[in-house]
């Protein structure tokens, strides 16, 4: 598919500084899982991409990163044209072949369909970027693990029950695993494969 020039929008006004700032935000959320940040270095995103997804793409994607898009995004001319033009990332047909998967929460591939890396090279795994309808620190998941002093709570809306339990159980396969960014408008959070996820327990009944 060619680039449709009438769909193209401007990228970062200052690509060097904005890429660095967005990367630092990504580094913060990945090293402190469950932390929410807002990133505002681009004013608009291609229709179909959240602002934070678009900024992550501009910051991290390039001709060396293979990208798989979930069906609605893959059929979206604005998304494809802008990714091709600004990032020049190759788009692949199979999520297993992708370094980055960008997906709507309702169109997520099974975790098992993604590349989890190998025992010797666990870093060669897919990074999953999910666009979700809401993202907050309301108590839904209780997170623990590296990057979290005690526990942190995170609410990621719109995920199916099977996906949530797959993600929770995937921790047993560490060091293999999938690292995820959650994007909603200009907000972003991340869960690396080290983060243990537990459903939030209401305060224990008095005992």
């Amino acid at each position: 598919m060619a680039v449709s020039s009438h769909e193209l929008i401007a990228g970062f006004a200052d690509p060097v500084q904005a890429s660095q700032q967005v990367f630092r935000a990504a580094l913060k959320v990945m090293s402190e899982p469950g932390t929410l940040v807002e990133i505002d270095y681009a004013e608009t995103a291609p229709k179909g991409l959240d602002l934070s997804t678009w900024q992550l793409a501009l910051s991290l994607l390039d001709p060396n990163t293979r990208v798989w898009l979930s069906p609605t995004l893959a059929a979206n001319d604005a998304v494809i044209s802008n990714l091709r033009f600004h990032c020049q990332c190759p788009l692949v047909d199979n999520p297993f072949d992708a370094d980055f998967v960008i997906a709507w929460h309702s169109e997520l591939p099974l975790l098992a369909e993604l590349n989890w890396g190998t025992a010797e090279y666990p870093d060669r795994s897919t990074t999953l970027i999910v666009q979700v309808p809401a993202l907050s620190d309301e108590p839904d998941w209780t997170l623990s693990g590296p990057g979290i002093e005690h526990t942190r709570s995170l609410y990621v809306a719109g995920l199916s029950e099977p996906f949530r339990s797959d993600l929770t159980r995937s921790r047993q396969r560490f060091p293999l695993g999938i690292d995820t960014f959650w994007c909603c408008d200009n907000r972003m959070a991340a869960l690396p494969r080290t983060t243990q996820i537990e459903p939030f327990k209401k305060a224990e009944e008095a005992c």
Binding site: P15, V16, Q17, S19, Q20, F23, A26, L27, M30, S31, S59, L60, D62, N64, T65, P122, D123, S125, T127, P146, G147, P175, G177, D179, P192, R193, T194
Partner: peptide
């Protein structure tokens, strides 16, 4: 020279490696 000497393509590659390193604490990312 580019900001902080390295070109943007190299920085992106290193940034992706750093993110993987953070996700797998203690593992050496080539």
């Amino acid at each position: 020279y580019n900001f902080a000497y390295l070109d943007e393509q190299s920085k992106r590659m290193i940034r992706r490696a750093i993110l993987k390193g953070v996700a797998i604490p203690g593992y050496q990312v080539p």
